[in-house]
Simulated assay, not measured.
Amino acid sequence: MSDKDHKGSGKKALLTIGEMARLFHMNIRTLRYYNELGILKPEYVNPDTNYRYYSTNQFERLNTIKYLRALDVPLEKISNFFDEKDVNTMLSIFMEQRESVLKKQKQLAQIEKKITNRIEQIETALSASYGQVIVKYLPQREIVLLEKKFTLADDLELLIRDLSKEHCLDDAIFLGKVGVSVSQQDLIEGQFTHFSSIFVVVEAEDGFKDKDNVLSEGSYATVQYRGTHEDASPYYTLLLNYLKDSGFQIKGDSVEITIIDAGMTNDYNKFVTELQIPFQ
């Protein structure tokens, strides 16, 4: 019997794989893949031509597959459902998938918050009045800290790797949140060439539980400028002169964070760093 005769015989005509794909708005490769997995085998395969044919009897099964895939149910679970086709099996799939969706929603909400934070940080840096002292009252910020003395001559990237390794940090949390500090004593003595620590600001959305230190809540004299850590010295002097002239006293180590650097742009002229010195 020819393919043509077989298609026209019997109570229900058969559809070629191409016709089936067009009818259900699918790719032929997908139907072939479903055949390989065993979740939707052709009704008839011509032994001479190896052409695959489907019948209307399979429409309900394919609709079920498409529905479950639209809910992002894995193919393995769909296959298991057909092995144990029962309303309780379907209910179990729905309940498991709902839990998966709720988990993804939580993850997406965290990602959205992190993106929003970065947008606000970058937009603020791009529109800042560079070189102008601004007093800010900043909330407590949780950090992961590596206390180690180093200078600008040291490789900061290696120190970041040390920090990451010591605390098993996800590298994805680093962008725009790595900071260094000059000790309070060095600030008082006007020495800005040595740092006392390197840290990462940890946000709630990072999901990191082993935070080991904080940047204290309080008043900070701050300044943003074009450049990186190598350009910080005159801006430290600017902040210290402001505090002295205003009758304020330094209350802790500095906070020095490069907000826009080589991780975001190749244009050095667009690099932005912020210095913060706590005072009372």
Rank of each mutant, 00 (worst) to 15 (best):
T64D: 07
N46S: 10
V73S: 02
N80M: 11
F94Q: 10
N50A: 09
V133C: 06
A109N: 14
A70H: 13
L68C: 06
L71H: 03
Q58C: 04
S55C: 06
Q105P: 01
P47G: 08
E96S: 11
Q107L: 14
A109L: 12
D86W: 01
A109D: 15
T89F: 11
A125Q: 06
Q107G: 03
K85A: 10
I115G: 02
I28V: 15
I111T: 10
V144S: 07
R29M: 09
N57I: 00
R69K: 14
V133S: 04
E96C: 01
Q132T: 12
E123Q: 14
Y130Q: 07
L68H: 06
L40E: 02
I39K: 01
F94V: 13
M95N: 08
A125T: 09
D72Q: 14
L126T: 05
A70V: 00
D48F: 13
Q132E: 13
Q58E: 13
Q121S: 13
Y130V: 14
L40A: 04
L68P: 04
F82V: 11
I39C: 02
V135D: 00
V101K: 05
Y33L: 09
I122M: 12
L31H: 07
N46H: 11
I115L: 12
F81A: 08
L126R: 12
K104A: 12
D48G: 07
R61K: 15
Q121V: 01
N88I: 09
E60W: 02
R141S: 15
P139G: 12
L126S: 07
F82C: 09
I134V: 15
L31R: 03
I78F: 03
D72M: 06
E123H: 08
N35D: 15
A125I: 09
K104Y: 11
K103S: 09
M90N: 04
N80L: 14
V135G: 02
E112G: 02
N63G: 04
L31C: 03
M90H: 07
S79G: 11
A128S: 15
V135Y: 01
E120R: 13
D48P: 00
E43N: 12
S92Y: 12
N117F: 13
V101I: 15
V73M: 07
R69P: 00
